[in-house]
Simulated assay, not measured.
Amino acid sequence: MKSRTRAFNGLICALALASCSAPPKPPVVDPASKRPANVPAIVELQICRNDLHDARLLAAKSDRLAQANAEILAQLSQRQQSLAAAQEAAAHQREPRNRVFTVLFAFGSADVAIPSPDAQALVEAARLAALVLLRGRTDGSGDSLVETRMARARAVAVRDYLVAAGVAPQRIRTTYQPTGDHAADNESAAGRAVNRRVEVELYPALPLPLGPSQARRP
């Protein structure tokens, strides 16, 4: 009995030693889990995926560029509008306009006495004007030789004053009206002081003559 047990144990030990000395078996790979990386269809699919990714990146970049260009265009448009408005405003400011100065006179006098600031402004504007029209006036209540001479003398006095200040005489025209063109109430002393005047009309451009058809229009 003991001999059989020993033999059985010896067999078991032999089997154990045999199993330990045998090399391990290689792992078994399931063919279904293999990834056919070199299959042409798979390669083409990967290329398509890469191309799609690159296209998406380019599209996003294009969107950003388009948005940036739109913002730049909007800023340029706004700037152009601002510049156009500024140029238009500057043109209106530079646009020459007709101006009228009034030179007042003492009773019965044709002496020109203009305050210094007003005199300087009048002379500077008259030098730039293409036409200077002088209209002599009096505070007379009726036509008479005296009033006529006074109105004319005042217009001539202002003309001589402007010529002496450097205004070209060929650009000055004089006219006068002794009565009937009052600027204020001629019944009061203050009104008569305003009526004793020469109106200096300054034109930046010479008037254009009317054609025959324009002259006949009502």
Score class of each variant (00 low, 15 high):
residue 159 R to M: 14
residue 208 L to S: 13
residue 190 A to T: 08
residue 164 A to N: 13
residue 166 G to I: 02
residue 179 T to K: 05
residue 163 V to H: 06
residue 191 G to H: 03
residue 201 E to D: 11
residue 198 V to T: 10
residue 193 A to Q: 04
residue 178 P to L: 04
residue 161 Y to V: 00
residue 156 V to I: 08
residue 173 R to F: 08
residue 204 P to G: 09
residue 190 A to L: 10
residue 187 E to I: 01
residue 181 D to V: 08
residue 215 A to S: 12
residue 179 T to A: 11
residue 194 V to T: 13
residue 202 L to E: 08
residue 201 E to W: 14
residue 158 V to G: 04
residue 205 A to Y: 13
residue 151 A to T: 09
residue 207 P to W: 09
residue 160 D to P: 03
residue 192 R to H: 02
residue 190 A to K: 06
residue 169 P to H: 09
residue 204 P to K: 09
residue 153 A to P: 02
residue 199 E to S: 14
residue 155 A to V: 02
residue 180 G to A: 10
residue 201 E to A: 14
residue 163 V to Y: 07
residue 168 A to E: 14
residue 203 Y to D: 10
residue 168 A to L: 09
residue 183 A to P: 00
residue 191 G to P: 03
residue 179 T to D: 13
residue 175 T to A: 15
residue 175 T to H: 10
residue 158 V to R: 02
residue 153 A to G: 07
residue 152 R to S: 14
residue 198 V to W: 01
residue 211 G to H: 03
residue 190 A to P: 02
residue 192 R to K: 14
residue 199 E to M: 12
residue 209 P to M: 06
residue 216 R to N: 12
residue 176 Y to L: 03
residue 152 R to H: 12
residue 199 E to W: 02
residue 154 R to N: 11
residue 205 A to K: 11
residue 181 D to C: 12
residue 215 A to Q: 14
residue 191 G to Q: 04
residue 208 L to W: 03
residue 162 L to V: 02
residue 172 I to K: 07
residue 200 V to G: 11
residue 197 R to N: 07
residue 174 T to V: 09
residue 148 T to N: 13
residue 166 G to F: 08
residue 203 Y to N: 11
residue 153 A to Y: 02
residue 210 L to A: 09
residue 149 R to A: 15
residue 171 R to C: 10
residue 210 L to T: 06
residue 196 R to N: 06
residue 159 R to I: 00
residue 184 A to K: 06
residue 174 T to N: 13
residue 215 A to R: 14
residue 159 R to P: 05
residue 152 R to I: 05
residue 151 A to H: 03
residue 198 V to Q: 09
residue 180 G to S: 12
residue 176 Y to F: 13
residue 163 V to W: 04
residue 198 V to D: 04
residue 186 N to D: 09
residue 200 V to P: 04
residue 164 A to G: 08
residue 187 E to V: 01
residue 212 P to S: 15
residue 211 G to T: 12
residue 179 T to V: 12
residue 187 E to F: 01
residue 205 A to T: 10
residue 187 E to K: 13
residue 151 A to K: 06
residue 152 R to K: 15
residue 165 A to W: 06
residue 197 R to K: 10
residue 156 V to N: 09
residue 180 G to F: 03
residue 214 Q to C: 07
residue 166 G to C: 07
residue 173 R to E: 14
residue 178 P to A: 15
residue 185 D to W: 04
residue 187 E to M: 07
residue 196 R to H: 07
residue 196 R to T: 03
residue 207 P to N: 12
residue 209 P to C: 08
residue 208 L to I: 12
residue 185 D to C: 05
residue 213 S to H: 11
residue 195 N to T: 06
residue 196 R to L: 04
residue 166 G to A: 07
residue 214 Q to M: 13
residue 205 A to F: 11
residue 151 A to N: 05
residue 189 A to E: 11
residue 205 A to P: 00
residue 152 R to G: 11
residue 217 R to M: 15
residue 207 P to L: 12
